[in-house]
């Protein structure tokens, strides 16, 4: 994939994309993520005349164009639940939550997964379904950070020396070892214990979780039944939605769930990049089930390798299709 922003209008951007099949596209990405126009001459304009591969090249192009505008210009153009930065943030927050907060957020999710495996009472009653149906357990995650929490976190970062360590590491002239390693080293040298800070940040970042929800495929569509909850949820799209199968996991306790949940979300991050046609960052070149839909995409087609399968042999992470600016996020810090 290779993208370049060619034009800005009052409503959005014109982006030229070369897809992984070498076809040139002009894609209009509006500030809200809507596609306003799409010109290309490599495939039939009428989707009913396209092959499966041609569908996916077109879809990859649109996903990458939206991601490119998001990262370069800072607009909310990526589809909800498909923003790898948000999903990664959710994963990191979950990894660092104090045990009681983790249980408060995901204890019922855990119970439903255990029910799925026949080991607990259900939170949500699963209706009788055909034997070929695999219900999955899902729960929405809303990220946010209140102003007061931000101030409190800042105080904490000053108190424990984290801020100073990070700033010093960032200001070092040395390019050796990369920024993250330098931060790690500085923190280790000064014996700063980040555990409490990370927990506080994590608690602040996870604003709310939605009800435990069972979804299952009925043809191309999904059906669902959700837990009824009293709490009020934010009036906006959630940022992450784990999709797990209880009977595929053997958990002894909540900490087992936490490990698998973090990994599952990292697999979703991987899926976001793979289905944009570029390589995932190295840390998430991992195998295992991520997005439910993508299990079918990976397993039913040769277009993608079996990234969902922990035992598959992966020979292609799409590095050769990844442009130099694929991970650049300058637009996020420079724009409003």
């Amino acid at each position: 994939m290779d993208a370049e922003i060619k034009k800005e209008t009052n409503n959005g951007f014109g982006v030229t994309v070369f897809d992984n099949n070498g076809v040139k596209h002009k894609v209009g990405v509006l500030y809200n993520g809507e596609i306003s126009g799409h010109l290309q001459s490599g495939y039939p304009d009428d989707p009913s005349k396209r092959s499966q591969e041609e569908h996916e090249w077109v879809n990859q192009t649109r996903r990458f164009a939206k991601f490119y505008v998001y990262r370069q210009q800072g607009y909310e153009t990526v589809d909800p639940l498909s923003n790898p930065d948000r999903i990664a943030t959710a994963a990191m927050a979950i990894a660092n939550l104090p045990p009681d907060t983790f249980e408060a957020h995901f204890g019922e999710f855990y119970q439903q997964l255990r029910h799925d495996a026949g080991e607990a009472a259900p939170v949500v009653e699963v209706p009788d379904l055909p034997p070929t149906t695999v219900p999955r357990v899902e729960q929405d995650i809303y990220l946010g950070l209140e102003e007061t929490d931000t101030a409190a976190i800042l105080e904490r970062l000053i108190d424990d020396g984290t801020l100073e360590a990070v700033v010093n590491a960032a200001m070092e002239e040395s390019e050796d070892g990369g920024l993250v390693n330098r931060i790690r080293q500085t923190v280790a040298d000064q014996e700063i214990d980040m555990t409490d800070t990370a927990a506080a940040v994590s608690e602040g970042v996870i604003e709310a979780v939605g009800p435990v929800t069972i979804r299952w495929a009925n043809g191309a569509d999904d059906e669902e039944v959700a837990q009824s909850v009293a709490r009020t949820l934010p009036d906006r799209d959630p940022q992450a939605r784990p999709q797990m199968f209880g009977r595929a996991y053997q958990f002894d306790d909540l900490e087992d769930l936490r490990q698998s949940l973090v990994r599952h979300l990292c697999c979703q991050v991987r899926d976001c990049y793979i289905t944009m046609g570029i390589a995932p960052p190295e840390d998430v070149r991992i195998q295992g089930p991520g997005f439910y839909d993508h299990l079918g995409w990976y397993s039913n087609h040769d277009f993608y390798q079996n990234y969902h399968d922990p035992e598959a042999s992966i020979t292609d992470w799409q590095e050769q299709h990844t442009p130099d600016d694929a991970y650049d996020f300058s637009g996020l810090v420079e724009s409003a």
Binding site: Y43, H55, E56, L295, G296
Partner: peptide
């Protein structure tokens, strides 16, 4: 059991 096909794409 997951039969999900690759997504149909939109017209261009």
């Amino acid at each position: 059991t997951v039969k999900r096909e690759l997504q149909e794409s939109d017209g261009t």
